[in-house]
Amino acid sequence: MKTIGLIGGMSWESTRSYYENINRLVNQKLGGFHSAKIVMVSVDFAEIEALQQSGDWQTAGQLLANCAKQLEAAGAEVFLICTNTMHLVAEQVEAAVSIPMLHIADVTGEYLQQLSHKKSGLLGTRFTMEQDFYKQRIQDKFSIAMLIPDNEDRQSVHDIIYQELVQGEINSDSREVYLAIIDKLAAQGAQSVVLGCTEIGLLVKQTDTELPLLDTAALHCQAAVDYALSSKSK
């Protein structure tokens, strides 16, 4: 079993889900007393959020690159950035180490291909929905069109993430806001909706809607476990 490295804390609410899911998946696969081999570096999200808001992605990238170096030094053989938004600096982080990184957009695109979906909605922070590092990567690598909400709805999705979900607040009214936006995306032809923020899965579940929801955190965890238990090296 390979050792999985996690760059967490963005927010710790979703990082907790990563740790739990990865361990449960390993135990389901191997049984007995088995659990995952994990090393983690967890950042202070206040520092990251301030850099996001100021647009200082270079400094944010260097901060996460230093985290990746710590993981490699601690024995990680593969690593994950436990958030969608900070994949904006993925190339800078990857370049800092020699161990492979599992990109959350690639994991998502591969799963959409397995579903034979050609058009999917995308919910996430404004950074994820509006910039090309995520949706364009899926479109270019997997030939899947990514639909995003209109400007007002994007702001609502973003605000609920930062004002509620990263604080651990789960509100039924906010769930209804998300579900209404999901319905709009379905009306535009979305065959599924990518929950492109690792906290959204804490609020919206598949039981809430008939449209297939892709919980990117769950997909990321599965990919990490598959890699850790395989004989391949990347």
Rank of each mutant, 00 (worst) to 15 (best):
Q28C: 03
R175W: 04
G75K: 01
I170T: 01
D226S: 03
D159G: 06
V97P: 14
A36T: 03
E49G: 01
N21Y: 02
I148P: 12
V41G: 00
A68E: 07
P100L: 03
L203M: 02
Q53K: 15
M86V: 05
G75F: 11
E152L: 15
D56R: 08
G109H: 07
T15E: 07
Q163G: 12
K69N: 13
T3V: 07
S143M: 02
Q62T: 14
Q139G: 05
T83V: 03
D56G: 07
R16W: 06
W12G: 00
T198S: 09
Q131C: 06
C221Y: 03
M1P: 12
A105Q: 04
K232R: 07
E152I: 15
L147F: 10
I38T: 03
H103Y: 02
F45T: 03
A190G: 02
S230T: 07
Q167P: 10
V26K: 00
Y111Q: 10
I81P: 04
I81V: 11
V107P: 13
S17G: 08
S17D: 09
H103Q: 04
I7D: 05
G75M: 11
V41T: 02
L30C: 05
T128Y: 14
L102V: 05
Q114L: 15
G61Q: 05
S35W: 02
L112N: 02
E91G: 12
K135W: 08
M146D: 03
I81E: 01
T85V: 15
K37P: 01
E47L: 11
A74W: 05
A145R: 15
L51G: 06
I99L: 14
S143G: 07
H158Q: 12
G168N: 10
L71D: 09
K141M: 01
L25C: 00
F79I: 01
Y19R: 00
Y18S: 06
T209W: 00
S231E: 05
Q113M: 10
T125S: 11
G109I: 09
S42K: 08
M40E: 04
A180F: 05
H87E: 06
G124H: 09
A65C: 10
A190C: 09
A36I: 04
Q191L: 09
E47G: 00
Q52E: 11
F79Y: 10
R24P: 01
V89K: 00
N171Q: 06
Y227K: 08
Y18V: 14
E176H: 13
K232M: 01
K234I: 03
Q58G: 15
F127M: 14
G121P: 10
S231L: 05
T83I: 02
C221G: 04
T209C: 10
Q52H: 14
V78A: 11
L88M: 14
L214S: 09
A217R: 08
Q58I: 11
G75T: 10
I170M: 02
Y227N: 04
L195A: 15
D183Y: 06
S174C: 09
V26D: 02
V157L: 08
E130P: 02
I7Y: 04
I22L: 01
I22Y: 00
L214F: 14
V43M: 11
L63D: 03
Q92H: 13
